[in-house]
Amino acid sequence: MRKCSTANLDALLRTIAENASLYLPVDGTDGRAHFTKWEDGVKMSDALNTVRSAKDFFFPQTENLMDFKVEGKTIEIIDTREECEDFVIFGVRACDVRSFDILDRVFLVDPVDTYYKNRREHGIIVSMACTRPSETCFCRTFGIDAANPGGDIVCYKEEDAWYFDALTEKGQALLSKLESLTEECDTAAVDAQKDLIRERMDKLPLADLTADAFGGDKLNTYFNAPEWKSLSQSCLGCGTCTFVCPTCQCYDIKDFKTNKGVQRFRCWDSCMYSDFTKMAHGNNRTSQLERFRQRFMHKLVYFPANNEGIFGCVGCGRCLSRCPISMNIVKVMKELGGNA
């Protein structure tokens, strides 16, 4: 474990930024935290979490896949992939760190998504423990320990100092570059913080929420449950929950005609949208109930069925605070699972 005095943090960030682009949560003009590129003078936000999740770094909202040049009847395909630069995301919370594991299970299984893989290989994650978890937090429901986030380096912020511990080789390599700004230290302060965090986690309003009632084998239990009707009743069919969600990964592939050719790009899509499954001669999910059900069944049943029981939710609470009608996965779990 290495320790960096709070006074030295700016110098530490500067050193990181010398070798790689550094992103960290910064309060925007709207008063909320967003991941922003660090430069001299930029102050890290104290907010618990960012409005958008950190998935954008590996799976951006839109990205160009390839270009086409079309002339007469002929087509030329231009591979626009480029090796991405190294970057560091600083201050990622435990929930978001876990979301990368979930995205990996989609994008890194065969056939590998090279766009995602490229970014994943060049990204270093510095996670950060949550000393003040919010009322909307329920990461523990999914076995995440906010006191022990994953990533390449984990950090703990105390009043007078920041504590760092490398968890991977990549993290070790970065930490060794910061040796002059950090000093070896014992784990007493960090242990105390971990105890405090766990004590606080115990007291959260959603501390008792469990996902035990859900899992890969629960398709028939819930698919035709009458509760979906009232749960989905006032859903607007917007994409807010999907787009702020760190694990939602559905996408669309579209073509854009530039003035000289065609750009094929992919962009986030939402299973909540009415045209998500629409095809030339029909739509297999015509009601909002079906679309709403798909989103939650995917996270609580279908995803675990294919991934050794791991749920497709990390309990970050973003949908709890952002849904225009305040409908969210916690309400769905409580209503369906009956453990209200």
Partner: peptide, 16 residues
């Protein structure tokens, strides 16, 4: 530019 750059096109404004 600053305000609109945050838009994530969730369409909530339209749908509500």
């Amino acid at each position: 530019q600053n305000e609109l750059s945050r838009c994530i096109r969730c369409n909530a404004c339209r749908d509500v």
